[in-house]
Computed example of a mutant assay.
Amino acid sequence: MSGFLVKQPGLLTLIQDGGRYGHHRIGLTNGGPLDADAFKWANRLCENDLNATALEISIGGLVLEAQVDTILAVTGAHMPFKINGQEAQRWQGHKIKAGDKIELGFTTAGTRAYLAVAGGFQMEKTFSSTATVTREAIGGLNGQKLQQGDILACKSHHTDTLWALPESEQPDYLQSATLRVILGYQQHSFDPVQQRLFFSSEYTLTDRADRMGFRLEGQRIQSMLDGILSEGICHGAIQIPADGQPIVLLNDRQTIGGYPKIGSVIARDTAKLSQRMPGTKLSFEEISLEQAHNINCLAERRFITTALQRIA
């Protein structure tokens, strides 16, 4: 099957769908897009199933050559986007013809962009998902990041209708980020002073950040636990290792770990975190489980009810 030829793969471009679930028991992590919101918008703009396979482009540098006629949309980080050398708008659909050259330059705000095509990229699933996890070498194309010369298979698609997300609904990746946290069952191993220090301090995102987790630097906090038996780890868990500097665990995290955890960042805010560059200042805010449910329900409702603009 034809699709798109990878002329330049960029620094780190991965094939992702919504993620791989139900396999922690055999040690396989979730994978999937770090910014699920931008990923879903890319698919919605192409009128796809929201779980359809797309590309996650970190930092930029991707160049593709189309081999089919289709519809394409780019969302997420502010990466210069060109079609045949001409500037193109992100957050909207574009008609692509066979032979067209698609370029994404290097980001000026945010860190990850998402590129979707109508019908999604056609990839064989591994353990129920196409999500690439390079540490486990599964998903995508041979479990690796894109390489020059790869073919991204997709079907030809024709339509007279193109959609755009209103600018007012597009995220601002330059805003300061406050990460909302649900305290975990190990919260009592952090005394009230340590908890107050954690929630009242500002942390800096370090360059030790990847799809497994983001290390922060700032006020040191301590747990009364010297260590714990390894146990399952959820998305967004905030581990506190011996140096007292928080680590927020993300999609490609290990499935078990033995550091105390003060709580977990909600998924809507790990998406914000994943779009921040090293040096960004961050803070944490405690919320209840009920508040987290409300935040999630309202955001899902807004996504469903936000009207796209018809541009063709």
Rank of each mutant, 00 (worst) to 15 (best):
I15F: 03
T111G: 07
N48M: 01
D150K: 00
L34C: 09
R220P: 05
W163L: 11
Y203N: 14
L64S: 02
V74F: 01
R310Q: 05
I182K: 11
A66F: 00
H158T: 14
D210K: 02
D172M: 02
F81T: 08
K155D: 15
P241D: 06
G184H: 03
I96A: 03
N296R: 08
D207W: 05
L72P: 02
I247D: 14
T29E: 08
A271S: 14
L152S: 00
D69Y: 08
E169I: 00
L115E: 02
R215M: 13
Q275N: 13
S283R: 10
H78Y: 04
G257C: 07
A116Q: 01
I295G: 00
E167L: 10
I311M: 01
T53V: 11
I57L: 01
T53H: 09
Q309I: 05
R253N: 11
I57G: 05
Q16N: 09
Y259Q: 07
N51S: 07
I151K: 00
T132S: 08
M79G: 06
V63H: 06
T305Q: 15
A242T: 10
M79K: 04
T159Y: 01
G140I: 08
T178P: 00
W91H: 01
F127E: 13
L141G: 11
C46A: 02
L104Q: 04
I238H: 03
A116W: 03
